[in-house]
Amino acid sequence: MPSLSTLLSLFIDGASYGMILFLIASGLTVTLGIMRIVNLSHCGFAMIGGYAALALVSMGLPLLAALPIAVLFTMAVGFLLEQTIYRVVYRTHEFGQILMTLGLTYLMVATINLLFGSLMQNIPVPEALNGVWLAGGLTISKYRIFLVAVSAGVAVLLWATFEWTMFGAKLRAAIDNPRMARASGIDVGRLLSVAFAAGCGLAALGGVLGAQMLPLEPFYALKYLVLVLMVVTVGGLGSLKGSLVAALALGLIDTFGRYFVPEFGGFVIYVTVFAFLLVRPRGLFQNA
């Protein structure tokens, strides 16, 4: 049995990994909840954000200054795409949507490849966050703690927006029943555009902050897509709470699984997800 400190540091690793997954998945679950569109490009936005930050940092900007610019940039890209290509995507049948967004992902991969090359890249961590804290035989990476803190803050902010603002109320209505929401005078289309752009921003945030764990490369958009989709499905479509729980659970299961049964590596998590979806095909929190 490993020592308590090992368990604790595994826990922190798993939790920070899960929080990154949550940041990336949160936008997807909202758009999926409203429009029932399987947006396979979503991970691409995390990648765009990551690379935008990388470009800014390599121009000499500190990471914390590059972060908001990268997020805003990704939101702009997402908004533009939503206004153009996604208008066509919405109109096609369910499977066409899957394929079109897959095609779009390929285009993103190719674009990033053209601009940044195919090498794996890391965004350097700022000096202040580098290193570890030592506390009673426990080594905790500062950056991981920073990650958990930031993403927990974002999660609280999201939750507050959802629960306490008019915008959040409208979003919840649109997720529960888009037609009824439309009938009661909510402009669901505009709501979706805003949610889409915000979701891209969140994904970008996850992409930038998580670049340590999920290193940037052109195939990023495809490589982590499966994980993100699983978070959304396990959590239940349109449920932020579900995504949060699912992301944390997946992050922890994956980290602990890799530690305790290394010979099965990434296998554990997929078995878990598969078994879970069989028992609860609608995910954790979905009653629709």
Binding site: L32, L237, G266, Y270, F274
Partner: peptide
């Protein structure tokens, strides 16, 4: 195949990824 729609899509995906990881390990 008991599932439909998005869940079916995700289950087939999870199933394939599972076998992929299994072969890998």
């Amino acid at each position: 195949l008991r599932a439909k729609g998005l869940t079916l899509v995700m289950l087939t995906l999870a199933c394939a990824t599972m076998v992929h990881e299994f072969a890998n390990s």
